[in-house]
């Protein structure tokens, strides 16, 4: 894939996440895609992630993936961004996140996500929030 194609794939993925377009996520994630999170320290599958997508929005009115800084390398990209959310009670929170992704044939094959779970309570607007 060219640098342009990789950048476009990255933006398509995050726009789809933002716009709740699971049909596009289904297309851009390879069937064998693995998603790893530094907070949980375990890998999950494409199916795990897409089946829980709507649940992940529980309590949230809106999410935007802002201030994206994308750099590409020969088989992937790294994106640094600020995830902003508006909860159903009006609370606004944000998280700084970095993702390193692998790509192949127009699809994402691996996602490694890095964030700070100590910010989750402030993100959700509740001290009870846990990773």
């Amino acid at each position: 894939m060219t640098e342009g194609e990789i950048r476009e794939l990255c933006e398509t993925f995050f726009d789809a996440y933002q716009d709740k377009r699971v049909d596009i996520l289904e297309r851009v994630l390879a069937d064998d895609c693995v998603v790893w999170h530094n907070v949980f320290g375990r890998e999950t599958t494409k199916r795990d992630n897409l089946s829980r997508y709507h649940d992940s929005y529980r309590g949230q009115r809106r999410r935007t993936y802002d201030d994206r800084i994308v750099n590409t390398f020969h088989d992937g990209f790294v994106i640094q961004y600020q995830l902003r959310g508006v909860m159903t009670n009006g609370h606004k929170g944000s998280l700084w996140i970095c993702i390193v992704a692998r790509v192949r044939d127009g699809q994402i094959t691996r996602i490694d996500e890095y964030m700070d779970s100590s910010k989750f309570a402030a993100w959700a607007g509740t001290e009870e929030a846990k990773p």
């Binding site: 530094n38 640094q80 700084w96 964030m115 700070d116």
Partner: peptide, 22 residues
């Protein structure tokens, strides 16, 4: 953890580090 570096003329001008402080 993960760190993203911006490099100019062979030197690091910015380093952004992401980790889970918990």
């Amino acid at each position: 953890a993960c760190a993203v570096a911006e490099v100019h003329d062979g030197l690091i001008v910015r380093l952004s580090e992401y980790l889970d402080s918990s």
